[in-house]
Write a protein that binds this DNA or RNA. Sequence first.
DNA 1: TCTTTTCATGTAAACGATTGCATTACCTCC
DNA 2: GGAGGTAATGCAATCGTTTACATGAAAAGA
Lengths: 360, 360
Amino acid sequence: MAASIIDVARRADVSTATVSRALRGLPNVSEATRERVLRAAEELQYSISPHASSLASGRTGTVGVVLPFVNRWFYSQVVAGIDSVLRANDHDLLLYNLGDERVHERFFARMPLRRRVDALIVLNLPLSAAECEALVSMEVPVAVLGTRIPGCWHVSIDNAEGASTAVRHLINLGHRRIGMITGALGDPRGFTTPIVRQHAYRTVLAQAGIPYDPDLEAPGYFGIEEGASAMAQLLSLPDPPTAVFAESDQMAFGALRTLNRMGLKAPDDVSVIGFDNHETAELLDLTTIAQPVAHQGELLARQILDALSGASEEPTRVVVPTRLVVRGTTGAARVARPQHRHPSPRPGPEPDQHDRTTAR
Amino acid sequence: MAASIIDVARRADVSTATVSRALRGLPNVSEATRERVLRAAEELQYSISPHASSLASGRTGTVGVVLPFVNRWFYSQVVAGIDSVLRANDHDLLLYNLGDERVHERFFARMPLRRRVDALIVLNLPLSAAECEALVSMEVPVAVLGTRIPGCWHVSIDNAEGASTAVRHLINLGHRRIGMITGALGDPRGFTTPIVRQHAYRTVLAQAGIPYDPDLEAPGYFGIEEGASAMAQLLSLPDPPTAVFAESDQMAFGALRTLNRMGLKAPDDVSVIGFDNHETAELLDLTTIAQPVAHQGELLARQILDALSGASEEPTRVVVPTRLVVRGTTGAARVARPQHRHPSPRPGPEPDQHDRTTAR
DNA sequence: TCTTTTCATGTAAACGATTGCATTACCTCC
DNA sequence: GGAGGTAATGCAATCGTTTACATGAAAAGA
């Protein structure tokens, strides 16, 4: 049977109140007493009962993390970032994986985290208005990545900027026929990231005077396989793109595989740029837009800790920069192919510096 | 203020005891009453206080997962597997990332999970004898992956079998000079996986009559970068290997990168085989030993649930099979190079079937 | 009709901490 | 030497459940 605070109190010959204060390092405990308590606790191998403690104090010392996939690189990276900060501040991390649609529904029907966590971190979850409200109604600080929820702390990258940089990079290389592999779902429900990126893609093309062609947008749903299919779809066009912007590295990987299987090469046949700087991107020599992934997790955790400590009263929003990383899958557009009537001018020298270029 | 069980009791005009029973679906509650309680709870948006509940019942409904890295593919897969099973059985998952050595020490010094979880799942952690004992002394069921701890439930693959299959595959391709990129740490502390694989490598070579050469074993510490260095080291040997077995795909990726940067190709110059069947392995066309990763997580969770429900009294051990997946990075050994005195015989036809071969 | 069972419900004591308030002892200062 | 202040400690209520036990009513058996 594990020792309780009463046992410690008896052994140190003080009241349980004093034990509680001594153990938590509160003031108003004499040095002698504190030491006696500490020793007693040590000898009895006492460890506090977190449940009793939270029941009495109302604090749980736990932060819930709700996300759609633990097993994808991006999320596991963010979780690692959150964990490191939380852990350093003596908080626990309760993981909620909402991948399955049924789990998702159940979560919002039963609100199992209510009263169980001091705060919530929500990662890239498509949420209905009612669901957002349900979260807010838990009356704990909520920090959000990707999704926009009013009244919540917020961390994000500048998606418009990142996507624009990617597309501009391709244009600078002389490409005019530029496809995009999008991640957009049917119902975004507040998960605006893919929409923002897609919008940036269209805007930049328009600014460059390139006409809009809906056929050049293929859905890849943020998956490798789907990215591969999307690329196949783009290549089957009568006038296929010479460059493709995939809004996630995973989809770009799929795209590269498709090229590979069709005997084509990047960047000789098609330039490919991704988004994320996934750990595998370097291996595959993929040009991409890097975002600080684990760092965003750390920021979320810090926001939460500040909110909890009262240091941050009002929800804040922090935007972290992205960075263009030029590698081997993007290159100058080839001179016009036979079916073009007017050969396009030889592209000028690539204005982006090579490797690790910081955009903006 | 959230409603408590007392509010529900008042509204349904019963005692809190009855509310508790009705809500948990216990017998001995009349249908009429149960319905009344359910409605009252619904109307008040009541949700139970897990802390009060665990304090009173002694159960926490939470399983702790302790691991060295959340942000590596392997672990995030396992966690996803654990999560799915736990979630389906209404258990929560408390994540403990022990990557940092200091966090590790603190964990065992303070045992923060004591009294906080009903059970523990430990993934591939190098643990000292004292640490193992500390875990066992928590007096909750413990399920372990990779590490061996007496008195604990256990899931694993047959590492000896898997590694042997990998090395045999290379031998069957006619290779005689076979290197290994090992993951072994200085102090394994019970994390025997790399040792077992290394031992299998040596044994199979010996069985094939190939003399042991310590220079052919280079440490890669399960990392990409380190795998890359290990490969560089092997290639710098006076008589470099014609094939390399990396005991993890990540290290194999690093190895491939090194080859690539040196202008060499797999399998033309060096054959490479990995271990894990990492999601990226297919992309890089890496031959590897596949293990069911998420599935092992599910098994661990199921063992724990069985232990908790009393269905499994004694710790059990389940071994899941591995499978050789032949892809493009392994090929027949080239005929002997100039410096060899006697040309080795032309290798016979590859006995392993191509792609998706199941090894035992 | 009078036990004996069975079933539904209530009573109240845990569970193991935290914390507002009261108390005591000891200083300090006039 | 008494008033007032401060620091250390104790008392006891409280947090929101669960659950052993008691109770009473209805059903079953004799």
